[in-house]
């Protein structure tokens, strides 16, 4: 994870070539000593483009998923804990957002904003929180009936404290999954946005658009699809490890119980 971030930050120093300079004599050269990951359809060095692309892709992946998870968790928690009118209102908002034709929303945004990495992160984040909200709400609905919550309420603990200390930590499991799955999705959504004129514009590289450009050349330029795909995979796997590590560290009970199951078998 740290390594990925480091590679992205150091891209200018590490990249062997100018990532945006076309060279028509080198179109789709296979990986070699000169171009370790080959060249793309305009003869640009794929390694350099991957390194520069990492900056945008990683930032978009993490920040937009962060935004979506934050909004989703907050609204989901509020809906699940309070129930009643609050729940009904928030969940109908979720319904609305889910069916809303996103393409036209993006077109409308496009008419007002100029594309930048911030717009991209905001757009992906603000349109992607509904799943998290419903997941968190469901957990809250179940957890708030549990003994330890009911007991805290009886003792007179404040609502916020109960949510924060008792329910939320137990409701985070699906959120972690949603985030893990959300990161590659966001990285790919970015390249989808580019086509509206909202994403990162050419010639700048992102993993998503390198992958997209590889589509036409799949039989003769496998390196255009494989390397960005691998990069995304590595990101997801390392994030997954990180997420599990954090959770296990916070929750010593888990390992014990699992240990018990395993030994019993």
């Amino acid at each position: 994870m740290v390594l990925l971030a480091l590679l992205a930050i150091l891209a200018p120093a590490l990249a062997p070539w100018d990532p945006n300079r076309p060279d028509v004599r080198k179109i789709l050269d296979a990986p070699s000593g000169v171009h370790p990951l080959g060249t793309d359809q305009l003869g640009r060095d794929v390694l350099s483009r991957m390194l520069y692309g990492a900056r945008v892709s990683l930032a978009v992946g993490f920040v937009s998923v962060g935004i979506a998870s934050l909004i989703g968790t907050m609204l989901g928690a509020a809906a699940g804990y309070h129930g009643g009118v609050v729940d009904a209102t928030l969940m109908r908002l979720v319904d609305l957002m889910l069916v809303f034709p996103r393409f036209f929303l993006l077109l409308a945004v496009l008419a007002f904003l100029r594309p930048s990495i911030w717009t991209i992160m905001a757009v992906i984040g603000l349109t992607g929180w509904m799943g998290v909200a419903r997941l968190v709400r469901a957990e809250f609905l179940a957890l708030k009936e549990r003994e330890f919550v009911v007991w805290s309420q009886a003792v007179g603990a404040s609502g916020l404290r109960i949510v924060w200390r008792h329910i939320l930590p137990n409701a985070m499991a699906p959120v972690l999954v949603a985030m893990t799955l959300g990161i590659p999705a966001a990285i790919l959504t970015e390249s989808g946005l580019s086509f509206l004129g909202l994403g990162v514009q050419p010639p700048h590289a992102t993993w998503g658009n390198i992958l997209n450009e590889g589509k036409d050349a799949i039989e003769i330029g496998w390196w255009l699809s494989v390397y960005p795909g691998l990069a995304i995979l590595v990101t997801v796997l390392s994030y997954n490890l990180l997420g599990e590590g954090i959770r296990d560290a916070l929750d010593p009970r888990l390992r014990q119980s699992v240990g018990r199951i395993v030994t019993r078998r």
Binding site: N20, R21, P22, V24, Q41, L42, L107, L110, A111, P115, S194, F195, L196, G197, Q201, P202, P203
Partner: peptide
């Protein structure tokens, strides 16, 4: 898109900075 990218690189050499924007057709 590729034409735009090559034109951009050529004009950069001339001292003109070009920003490309690819937009959906109807818009």
């Amino acid at each position: 898109k590729k034409v735009a990218e090559i034109v951009q690189a050529s004009l950069k050499e001339l001292g003109i900075q070009v920003d490309i924007r690819v937009i959906e057709w109807a818009s």
